[in-house]
């Protein structure tokens, strides 16, 4: 979805965001990662007040989309704010496809960077077919029960469905993470047509 802001002097800035809420949800939810020195994200994360109006365009884009008819098993791999479109898929799955074997691998720098943690916990609690793996790449508390370090071929081999089950993978995150993950999945035997990717990161004219 595109969000366009217009300043009092007419200057406009536009950014694209993935929708984090499920299609059936009456509210539209976006996850905005604050980019230090950014033009749009510090405004959206710090300045915006209830009642402010934006121009939005969308939802648009049918490539990085999952619906129950796409089936599974489903492997969802997220880096940082790349969790947003996957959270939307998980919300949709919780409403329409409970019991579908699904594995989530979500990588962030530290525990405080985890978004949708409550939702992930509660979806996984309600449905044993959903397994959520979290990995912290920079700082992990001593009692951290999840994975440590960046997503790697070894980590994927440990958590991902074997290719013989014909899984469908969605990978969303910063470019380098997406490329490493997609290449590792293809190496594990996933057909590239079953690995859909979306790159996230600072965008726009000044970066």
């Amino acid at each position: 979805m595109d969000v366009r802001l217009t300043a009092a002097d007419g200057y406009q800035a536009q950014r694209s965001y993935s929708i984090a809420s499920a299609p059936a949800d009456a509210r539209l939810e976006l996850l905005v990662d604050q980019i230090p020195g950014g033009e749009v994200s510090p405004y959206l994360t710090e300045e915006v007040r209830t009642g402010d109006a934006f121009e939005i365009r969308g939802p648009i884009g049918g490539y990085f989309v999952w619906t129950a008819s796409n089936g599974g098993p489903l492997l969802l791999v997220a880096g940082g704010s790349g969790i947003a479109p996957l959270a939307s898929m998980l919300a949709s799955r919780a409403a329409t496809a409970v019991g579908l074997p699904t594995c989530v691998l979500y990588s962030v720098r530290s525990a405080q960077d985890l978004a949708f943690r409550q939702e992930l916990d509660s979806w996984a609690k309600q449905d044993p077919a959903l397994v959520v793996g979290l990995t912290l790449t920079r700082q992990a508390p001593p009692d951290w029960p999840g994975y440590r370090g960046r997503i790697s071929a070894e980590m994927l081999r440990a958590v991902a469905f074997p290719p013989s089950q014909s899984p469908l993978a969605y990978v969303c995150g910063p470019t380098a993470m997406v490329e490493v993950t997609a290449a590792a999945l293809v190496m594990l035997g996933y057909p590239s047509a079953r690995v859909r990717t979306e790159r996230f990161g600072p965008s726009g004219d000044n970066t």
């Binding site: 595109d2 648009i60 380098a176 790159r199 600072p202 965008s203």
Partner: peptide
């Protein structure tokens, strides 16, 4: 990363 993040065609949907 030394390289800036590059987005993909999904962000050009609009």
């Amino acid at each position: 990363s030394a390289e800036p993040d590059v987005l993909d065609g999904n962000a050009a949907a609009g």
